[in-house]
């Protein structure tokens, strides 16, 4: 028998921990790029690995080997810390989401609240990253990211609260358990909440139509303009992990998590459902033009929040629980 401590360590380090999640992050970046290219009638990554499968990894390695420049005027400490935080926050949040089986690596009552807190921290870190770069474009990008957070955070929280009311728990694992136990998914019970959640995730991931914080034609690379080399590699990996996080949250909260009525291993179900979620996010991203930041706020406050509240009212009236 292998001691339990070793198993736990392996779970955290290898599967379904760091190694697996990071590999998954690269894989989903590849799916996203490849599918976007397909939708736009292009090839996308092609030559690194089979069908360019290793391209995101190759990009990562290339960035690691590049020169790392810190601007003279930058706030050095914050400027260096931000990329680390941007990678570690989404990774940490992923430990709260069930991947292999019905319970996550870390699971406690109220971990959903902790996860919302992590989401906010990510946005705040982005703002700090932009601010500490001391560059016109970075500052504007950072401020836009903060603005955007003001727009999407409330409807996203409201949409996430929907399943918690339905399952009467604040733990993601237990929400998944409830869906598995009652053999239903929250997407059927709360379709409006699902739509709002996906829209808010697009904003969180800075995907078109909500990519104003890094709008290339307006402010170069937005808040990450001054980053290069290792730091940029970490930021990009962090973005990929965020994509995994978004996909697995959609899966856990609305698609029933890694459970299925058929006798399929949980990890396969998880991969299938998250891939589906990534596909959905990618298609949506190919479909629109970019909103201006003020239009984004207007959309969030005028439409998303009232509709999210409507969903809550419906839940309170007994529909969708």
């Amino acid at each position: 028998m292998v001691p339990e401590g070793v198993v736990a360590l392996l779970e955290i380090l290898l599967f379904p921990g760091f190694l697996f999640l990071i590999a998954l992050a690269f894989f989903y970046e590849w799916i996203d790029r490849k599918l976007l290219a397909k939708l736009q009638n292009r090839y996308g990554p092609l030559y690194t690995g089979p069908s360019g499968l290793l391209q995101p990894f190759a990009d990562f390695i290339k960035l690691l080997s590049k020169e790392d420049i810190t601007p003279k005027a930058a706030d050095k400490l914050m400027f260096s810390c931000a990329p680390l935080l941007l990678l570690s926050f989404p990774l940490l949040a992923l430990f709260l989401v069930p991947v292999n089986g019905l319970t996550a690596l870390i699971s406690f009552e109220g971990d959903l609240v902790f996860l919302m807190f992590l989401f906010t921290l990510i946005a705040v870190t982005i703002f700090i990253a932009g601010w500490s770069s001391v560059n016109r474009f970075s500052t504007v990008g950072g401020v836009r990211a903060a603005f955007q957070m003001l727009g999407y955070e409330i409807p996203m929280t409201l949409a996430m609260v929907g399943p918690t009311i339905g399952a009467r728990t604040l733990s993601i694992s237990q929400i998944v358990g409830w869906q598995s136990h009652n053999a239903t998914w929250f997407i059927w019970l709360q379709p409006i909440g699902f739509v709002i959640f996906v829209i808010c995730l697009l904003a969180e991931l800075e995907f078109i139509p909500f990519d104003a914080p890094e709008a290339e034609t307006e402010i170069v690379a937005g808040w990450s303009t001054e980053y290069s080399g290792r730091k940029l590699a970490l930021i990009r990996l962090g973005k990929d992990v965020e994509l995994v996080l978004a996909a697995s949250l959609i899966t856990s909260l609305f698609l029933g998590g890694p459970s299925s009525p058929l006798p399929i291993p949980a990890i396969v179900v998880f991969l299938l459902k998250t891939t589906l979620a990534v596909v959905l996010l990618t298609i949506l991203r190919a479909l629109f033009a970019r909103f201006r930041i003020d239009q984004m706020i207007v959309v969030a406050w005028k439409y998303l929040i009232p509709i999210a509240i409507l969903q809550m009212v419906l839940i309170q009236l007994g529909l969708g629980r």
């Binding site: 736009q40 078109i208 190919a286």
Partner: peptide
């Protein structure tokens, strides 16, 4: 113009 307003897909189609 589509590219300037962030509509990458339309940009790709038009240039194709």
């Amino acid at each position: 113009a589509a590219h300037e307003i962030g509509f990458e897909t339309l940009f790709m189609y038009l240039w194709r």
